[in-house]
């Protein structure tokens, strides 16, 4: 363990994993409790056109991904009460058109998209010092906003209709929450990629629900599980030479299932 930490890219990778665990722990709880898994998948895949646009225009892909994922979040949140289309239909359309746009942009760009694969499946080993700084800033923003609006987000997730009745600006809060999910996704894409993002948003929070009876506790335990999953996955991928993002996801999924089976065997409630 000490030996692998002597490389700077490994230090960065572990730091990125811990940062990701913190925001996944917090935001993932909302994704799971408010059942935003499909929406999060839609935002993640739509943001792929941000990556493509970055390549095409020469802008830093992380920055263009931030813009595009926030656009997707606002569109989905804004359409919720207005569009005649069903929400899951809207998301499905965004999901696929975003990916398609991304592919066209990349095809148009002169530069050969050498790390395209890392955006799809993540490459935590390629996290640079600058990436870490961007991730830290995004994480800071996310944590501060959640801390400020904790009681409103709790009301929104638990009972949206009653929140409306109480006069809370439900739609604005909902869009804000989706934007936080979008920012989280931007951070996570570095680590597990567009396609596997959903795993880190759901598995730590779902595991932690088994051990917690309040939203706050659920967040804290979820952060711990996230940290265990990413660090363990990273270590295993280093020694076995597996793809890091995929290994992290598999480790998360496996530990979750083991805990689930053990609980059922021992009938722990």
């Amino acid at each position: 363990m000490i030996e692998i930490l002597q490389y700077e890219f490994m230090q960065n990778a572990f730091a990125a994993g811990i940062l990701a665990s913190v925001i996944c722990g917090v935001i993932g709880v909302y994704v799971v409790l408010k059942r935003l898994v499909f929406i999060s998948g839609g935002i993640a895949h739509f943001s792929f056109c941000g990556i493509g646009f970055g390549y095409y225009s020469g802008i830093n892909p992380t920055l263009s991904t931030i813009v595009f994922s926030l656009l997707a979040a606002s569109a989905i949140g804004g359409a919720k009460h207005k569009a005649k289309l069903q929400e899951d239909t809207t998301i499905g359309i965004l999901w696929a058109t975003g990916m398609a746009l991304g592919i066209i942009f990349i095809g148009l760009s002169s530069e050969y998209a050498i790390d395209l694969f890392s955006y799809l499946f993540g490459n935590i080993l390629a996290v640079s010092h600058q990436d870490l700084i961007i991730m830290a800033i995004l994480s800071g923003i996310i944590i501060i906003i959640v801390a400020l609006f904790y009681k409103e987000f709790l009301a929104l997730s638990f009972d949206e209709e009653y929140s409306t009745v109480m006069g809370l600006p439900v739609q604005a809060l909902y869009i804000l929450l989706l934007c936080l999910i979008a920012l989280t996704i931007v951070v996570l894409i570095k680590i597990v990629g567009v396609i596997l993002v959903i795993a880190l948003l759901t598995i730590p929070a779902t595991t932690s629900r088994l051990f917690s009876h309040s939203v706050k506790k659920m967040m804290i335990i979820s952060i711990l599980f996230g940290a265990i999953y990413t660090s363990l996955g990273l270590t295993i991928s280093y020694y076995l030479g597996f793809a890091s993002g995929a290994t992290i996801v598999l480790v998360s999924g496996s530990i979750f299932f083991i805990i689930l089976v053990l609980r059922n065997i021992f009938h722990i409630k």
């Binding site: 409790l33 059942r35 638990f158 009972d159 629900r209 009876h213 939203v215 506790k217």
Partner: peptide, 8 residues
Amino acid sequence: YHESNFPI
């Protein structure tokens, strides 16, 4: 309509 599994 609240999720009965909601930790609250």
